[in-house]
Every structure is written in structure tokens, then in C-alpha cells.
Design a protein around this nucleic acid. Structure first.
Lengths: 225, 225, 225, 225
DNA sequence: CATGAATGAGGTTTCATTCAT
DNA sequence: TATGAATGAAACCTCATTCAT
């Protein structure tokens, strides 16, 4: 975030104008994409509205038609990214409803890794953005949404019952962040990523077994490879 | 990090001049402290060399006597913080050498939380700094050091043996980051922090039990509260 | 040239942006003129981009739209000046093609003095600029262009033939600089300037007679007054 | 010359304190030398008092004991250089008293080239300094001194008599500057330098023959090689 | 006397944002 | 509506000069 920038009153992530024409939608999309690309090469530091506009093939003026300021652009981009991640997680949670915790853990970890490593560069770049604005609405909302999804899912687990599902949900929704971020910033190769994913799954399974109260005799569990 | 700032050639975190007079040491210390304070109120965005100097009660010129540019100041501050955290972790690891994984997990999680929540504001502010420069030497070095400490510790566990201690060490050294960061940025109250700490401990214990190969019949393990 | 200034990588004198709107052209022109004026009162030392912009009645930002840094502005201004001088010399040379060396000398010295004393202040100010950057492309190019013009002209002289026209051309293209510069910096009055010009003409004529090989019996030459 | 620099009231080139102790003399000499070296690599632009002091192995404070400000240091250095050049010229003039103009021209041109190319780097660097401050006392004094030497010499010529010896002296004392400077800044190799020197000698001889009134029948003069 | 840390005005440059065209 | 030139506050950084030690 630049210091010239961004009026002190942080603005909501909503675009100033809802795109009603096809052209507008295209423009907005182009700006959005360009912003990510600019973030990709150069980082937050070198991201300027002018550069984004140029990359998008529009004028700065046009950019400001759709985003009242730099911050709102960043917030919008971050929001879309976080929404994708959260929705991937929500989907995985929803599809695991009623299953055993083992299946839940596997599904959820797999979904998280899948979305995070779909475009590693983007994930990495946007992590820095999120860290910079971690206190903000956008981030908080995303966090709460995924936590909620976990909580609801956990309460449907067929094999376990949780005394404090919110707490377990909080842990589940945050444990993955550290490892994934470390992998992203070191550009770890796929085999390493996979190994970490398996361990994280094992860890999650073990955690839920530990912290959840068995509804019936626990089954024998295999060892992670 | 500000866009005006910070020449692209990233500089090492070393002060440009070694203080030989007592006066200098005081100045350096003051700048360091001031930098953290400025980071605390305003974030990376509003952190400017001018502001830091003012807060430290010295002139900008003095700041630049000891740090060749903004980036090197930030790197130095971040480095000191990371070093503290890493050393706390290393200590905990070292003191757990030869013990059972249960004790290791408790010690390490406790140490990590203790140091992270000693000055929550500082931890939070410096996380953003670290995220912004995640690719850099300072961060990489800290990461590797703590991972190494975990690895060495794990290999001395009295009750377990690990096929891939480096992998387990990587997981251990990163899982805590997400939850702690979430707690910090939401300024969670102590009881919540404690609850999460207990769960993280439980999770770690369960993980090590799961992923480590028993050297002797495992003892009965209590349930987390 | 100021020490704060001017990235070490010397930039080409080209404006960074080609003006497409009429407004731009005006701005560029204004900056150019203002730069010379600022140079006029205060010299290179006191020439700052801020001052130039203010004098031009535009903002610093505008200046930097057209010149990526202070150096490029200076280079552009110097370049235009040198180009004018060189073209005046080239014209004089071209128009003397095929004539006798006497006529050539007169024409060329006269042209040089005319252009140099058209705006004495400007000539004086830009001489310092040129000296400061004497190693650079702009200056080198101008030097070579005028030397070439002399060389070509000399080879067409009707009365003389030159064994080493490049050498004679070098001498011709440089002898005038010292005297003219001395006159400029002492703000010598016109009569003095004229007297020096006549002597320089006589010297040049005598030199070419001396160093050139006669193609036919040399005519009697009058004495300078 | 730097903008931070040099109080607007230009100071005289005299050192603030006459060195009475041996140590002082050494220090002054060291600073002087260091200044030239700094000028050599980096030019006027990168010449700072701190850098000069460091190179001289003394503290800035000491530097300011002997030179009240940057400008006076520069003026002193320039003054010494110009004095050397002028004295070389004066010597050559003096030794040519009473001789024929041919001998005078040879002696003087040779002396000028010898001193100028003794340390080409220094000559080049100091030319820029002189250009920057061309209006100043130091430069004016040097100019006048050498012009006077020429004038006196010319009036003793055995073969010629000059109607306006001051004018001829002015021309003689300035014609060499342009060619020499061009050679210096292009770092021309010795053979080229020699060739130019011979031509300049020939030109000077021809000029004096042309502009001076014969005291007796002129002798036949050879052609320059 | 020498030292070198401290000063701070001021120079260069950037970039979010506006608005005339 | 789109454009992009213009703006100017503000950031980074330098360095001549001073003065306590």
C-alpha cells in the first residue's frame, strides 16, 4: 500500500458503480486481472494505479470510474480471492456433512491445498496484501465465513461430538495457513507439497479424534505414510 | 513497504556504521524502538523514515547514518524480532531433548505462545512486515533455524522415532503461525488464547503420536479439556 | 549537477513521453525555456528541478512526465543548444564548399561568433553544463558532427589540398572555443569581441595557408587590421 | 558543486589558517591531494567534504579547520592547479624574451601541452571545476596573469612588432584551451596529441607572422609536417 | 586540537487522484 | 464516457556544516 495513497478513511470494497453494461464488466474484469498481474511482478510495493490501468489497457481515469481509490481496488481483488478460497472450503465442508471426521479432514485439507496451489503466485502475492490489511472487514469476513462452515460441518460428524465446535473450527480454519504460506514463499516442488498435505491431513484427523467425543467405539486408524 | 522507498537492491540488515561512541548506541537503540512504535500505530503503510526519526527524537540524518535505507532498517528490526522468536523456540527445543513427544509438544507450543503474546502489538505489526518481504534472507534464515531446532529435538524423542524428521519439523514449525496470527489480529482475549493454545498442544501431541513410530508401547493419553 | 541527483545510469536525452496533446508541447517548451533561465541566474549549482518547474509555471510532476530525471532534462537542453551551434557551423561549411580557404575561414569564424554571441548568457551557462558532462554522448556527437563538416569542407577547397584533413578539421573545430569562452565569461564588450573575431579569422586563414598545400600560386594576402 | 553546499557568499581561496606546524602542512597537503583524487573518480558531482576527508585520512572536522567551507577547498585546489599552469606558461614566456616569434610560439605551445598532459585526469577534472566557477576571482586572476606574460613576451620579439600586443596575447593565451580540452576529454593517444601540438604551433607561428609587423625581411618558413 | 555523531534544509522523485478536453 | 496531462503532497535520502566529547 502506498503512502501517497489511500485516503485515511478505509473505503468499503464495493465498486463505486455496478457495471450494467457489457463493456463495463469487461473493463472491470480487465482491471482486476491486471492488478493481480502487477502484484505478481513487483509486489504491493510497485503496484500503482497507473501501472494497473496500463496493463489493463485502459486509462487511469477509467480505473477511477470503477474503483474510487487504490485501496478499494486492492480490497476488491483481495475479496474475490478470499471468496474463492472460502467457497472452496465451504463446498468441501458442505459435501462432508454427516460423514466421519476422517473424511471431513481429508476433504477439507485437500480442497484447501487445491485452491491455494492452483495459482501459487497469486496466492503468495495476495497473502502479503492480506497481511497488510489483516485487520480489515474483508479479511475478517472471510475468516468468519470459513470458521462457520467448519463449525456447522463438525456438528454433523457421524462419529464424534464436539464440546466446543467453534473452537475446533477456529483451529481447523487456521492451521493450514502457516504451512501453506511457507511452501508458497519457498516455491516448494509438488512432491514436497504433497507430503505436507498428507501430514496435515493426518494431523487434522488425529486432532479431531483427540478433541471430539466418540459417538461409538473408534475404528482402528491406519498410519500416515 | 512504501513505493518511494527502498532501492530495488535489497540491502543486508547490518547497520552501515558500527557505533564507537556511547552516544551512537543510544541513537541506534532509540531508532529501533521508534520504528516498532511507528509500526504499531499506522502499520507498514504509514511507517516513514521521517516519522521514525521524529519518534526517536533524532534527525533523519542520524537514522541514515546507521541504516543506509528504509529497507535495511525494517530488515534489522524484523531480524531482531525473528531472532527472539527463534531463540525462544530453540531454547524450548533444547530443553526438551530426550523427553517424550508429549512434553516436547507442550514445551514448544507454550514457548511459542509466550513469546508471541508477550507484546501482541509488536507481533502483529511485524507479521505484516515479514509477509511483505517473505522471500528475503532474514525470513528464510529464521524459518530454517527453527525448523532445524525442531528436527534435532524430534530425533531425540524418547518415545518415538520419525521416518522423515525434517518433514515433521516443517509442519511443527509452521502450524502455529496461522492460529496465532488470527488471534493477534482479532485481539482475542486471554481465555480464548489459552483455549487455542491447549488445543494446539493437543493437536501437536496427537500428530506426533500418529506420525512417529513407537519405540515402546504407548501409554494411555488423557483427553484435552 | 547536483549530488542528490541524477541516477548514475545516464539516461538518453529523449523525453520519456511523446506529447500527443497540444497542451503537452506547450509544457515541454516551457520547461525547456525555464531550465535555461534558471541556469542563467544561479548556474548549474542552483538549478533544481523544483525551481525549473516553478519557473515554467508547472508542477514538478509535469516536469517528470517528460524528463525521467534531472540529468535527462539537462541533456535535452544541452543537446538542443549544441545542435543549434553545430547546425550553424554546418551551414557555414556547406555554403563555403568549393571556395578558397580564405573565404572558408571567414565564413566559419563569423558563423561561430554569431551563434555564440546571439545569446551570450545562454552560451556561457551551457558551457559549464557541457564541461560537467564533457564525456557524454551528447557532447561527443556534437563535436564529431562539426569536425566532420569541417573536414568535408576542407577537402573541397579550391586553392589548397590537405594531407590530413581530419586533423586540420579538429583544430579548426576547437580553436574558437577558448577565446569565445573567455570573452563570454568576462562579458567583453562588442568591440573587443569583434577584434578577437578578426584576429581569429586571420589566424585561421594563416593556418590553412600554412598547413594546406597550394593547388596554384598563392595570391597575395592582406594584413589584418 | 553541490547545492547543499557552499554558503552563497563565495569565499576567498585562502585557507582560514596559515599552517605553522609541520603536521598542519602535511594535513593540508593530504586534503588537497585527496580532493583531487575524489574529483578524479566521480567528478564534481560526487565530491563531498566527507569523502575528501576520509580519503585524506582525517576527520571532516579537521578539514573544516583548514578550509572554512567546501567552496574554499575547491577554490584552493583549483588555484594551485591554475597557478602551476600559469607559471609554466610564464616561465616559457620569460625564457623566450628577445627571441623570434617562431621560437616563442614553439616554446609556449610546448610548455602548455607539457603541463596539461602531465596528469591528464587532473587537467580534465579541474577543467569542469573551472567551468563551473568561470566567473570567479581565481580563474580571472590566472587568465590575466598568463595574458600579461604573453603580452610582455610579445613586446620583446626580435623579429616582429605588434600594434595591439594585448589582443594578440589574449588570443594566444586562449586558443590552446579548446583543442587541449577536446583531446583530454576524448583521452586521445599520444601520437594524436603530438600531431595537434605541432599544428597548433604552426598555427601560432603563422598567426604571429600575419599579425605582427616585420622588423626586418621575414625569412623563409618551412612547412609543418 | 581532532574527532565524528548529529543536524536539518533541501533536493530528487513518485504516484494517487482530479478534471479539462 | 474515456482519456491522460497535470497536480502537489509527501516520501526518501544526501551532505555541508557544527559542536560536544
Amino acid at each position: 500500500m502506498n503512502s501517497h495513497s489511500v485516503s485515511t478513511s478505509r473505503t468499503p470494497p464495493k465498486p463505486r458503480k455496478v457495471p450494467v453494461q457489457a463493456r463495463s464488466t469487461i473493463t472491470v474484469k480487465a482491471i482486476h486481472t491486471a492488478c493481480i498481474q502487477v502484484l505478481l511482478d513487483g509486489g504491493l510495493d510497485r503496484m500503482t494505479t497507473t501501472r494497473v490501468a496500463a496493463r489493463a489497457g485502459v486509462s487511469v481515469g477509467s480505473l477511477y470510474q470503477y474503483y474510487p481509490n487504490k485501496h478499494s481496488l486492492l480490497a476488491a481483488v483481495l475479496n474475490e480471492y478470499l471468496t474463492q478460497v472460502v467457497e472452496a472450503v465451504e463446498d468441501a465442508c458442505r459435501q462432508s456433512h454427516g460423514q466421519e471426521t476422517t473424511a471431513m479432514a481429508s476433504a477439507v485439507v485437500e480442497a484447501f491445498f487445491k485452491i491455494k496451489f492452483a495459482e501459487p503466485g497469486v496466492s503468495h502475492a495476495l497473502h502479503a496484501v492480506a497481511a497488510e490489511v489483516s485487520g480489515e472487514e474483508v479479511v475478517r469476513r472471510a475468516t468468519l465465513r470459513s470458521q462457520k462452515a467448519f463449525e456447522v460441518m463438525l456438528s454433523t460428524a457421524s462419529d464424534r461430538h464436539f464440546e466446543d465446535p467453534a473452537l475446533a473450527a477456529f483451529v481447523l480454519s487456521t492451521v493450514g495457513i502457516g504451512p501453506v504460506q511457507a511452501l508458497l514463499s519457498s516455491e516448494a516442488p509438488p512432491p514436497v507439497v504433497d507430503a505436507v498435505r498428507r501430514h496435515l491431513t493426518a494431523m487434522t484427523i488425529a486432532y479431531l479424534r483427540e478433541v471430539g467425543i466418540s459417538r461409538k467405539p473408534a475404528l482402528k486408524v491406519g498410519r500416515v505414510r
